[in-house]
Amino acid sequence: MQELIIEATKSSPQIHFDPAGHVLEMSGESYPENAAKFYAPVFDWLGRYLAGLGEEQVTVNLAISYFNSSSSKALMNLFDMFDEACRTGRRITVNWRYDPDNETAQECGEEFKEDVCDLPFNLVACGPGQP
């Protein structure tokens, strides 16, 4: 399976999903004009990846400092997808990275964390510029 790389733009995050290392990373801001269109290939890739996934430990690193409402819905769907995969035996951990000065990013992380049941979800404070 090929890795998924999407370069960041002013209004969309950088995405780097590495299926060999099982590290999925997404960072930046997310307010694309059409969130459904932007995230469609991401969900498509994830669907195929999760379908072929075994017992390997997957690490999902997210550092999204600002996102619009459509993107937050897309993130909810993303976490639902991982949550469902965990329920059926996959090993996935999400690290929600936020700048400790950005209270909103932390509180949003808490909302996402509370929405999932079986998916391990860590809130990780880290300075700006850190991966």
């Binding site: 600002y66 996102f67 619009n68 409402s69 937050s72 819905k73 909810m76 909103t104 509180e107 949003c108 909302e111 996402f112 509370e114 929405d115």
Partner: peptide, 10 residues
């Protein structure tokens, strides 16, 4: 409900 709260915070 969560989405609305998140949207309000933003």
């Amino acid at each position: 409900r969560r989405l609305v709260r998140i949207s309000d915070m933003m």
